[in-house]
């Protein structure tokens, strides 16, 4: 299934080839979780600070169990803040 994978700020370096800006469309196995993606692209666990799927927050404890659906957009940031 196709999933849109987005890595922002300093995490952009972990995006695979073929990226457009901060996103890349990837093929993932059905049943893949957010955690699987983080592992597959070797995003350091500590740096994957803020994880959103389709804009919804996924708590650290839910990453291993949150199963992705076709067309989902996964976005990840390192520790950041603003004002």
């Amino acid at each position: 299934m196709r999933v849109v994978f987005k890595l922002f700020a300093s995490l952009a370096d972990f995006l695979p080839a073929g990226r457009r800006g901060n996103l890349v469309e990837i093929e993932a196995d059905p049943g893949s979780t957010v955690g699987d993606l983080i592992t597959r692209y070797q995003v350091p666990e500590k740096k994957a600070h803020l994880v959103l799927v389709n804009g919804h927050y996924i708590a650290p404890a839910g990453r291993a169990t949150h199963v992705l659906q076709e067309g989902d957009e996964v976005a990840i940031w390192p520790p950041i803040a603003g004002g």
Binding site: A9, L52, E73, A75, P79
Partner: peptide, 17 residues
């Protein structure tokens, strides 16, 4: 780390998502 490197502007994509 986050604020010095990216400033507050890093929120643009977060809040948009």
């Amino acid at each position: 780390e986050g604020l010095p490197k990216y400033g507050t502007q890093v929120l643009m994509n977060v809040i948009n998502e």
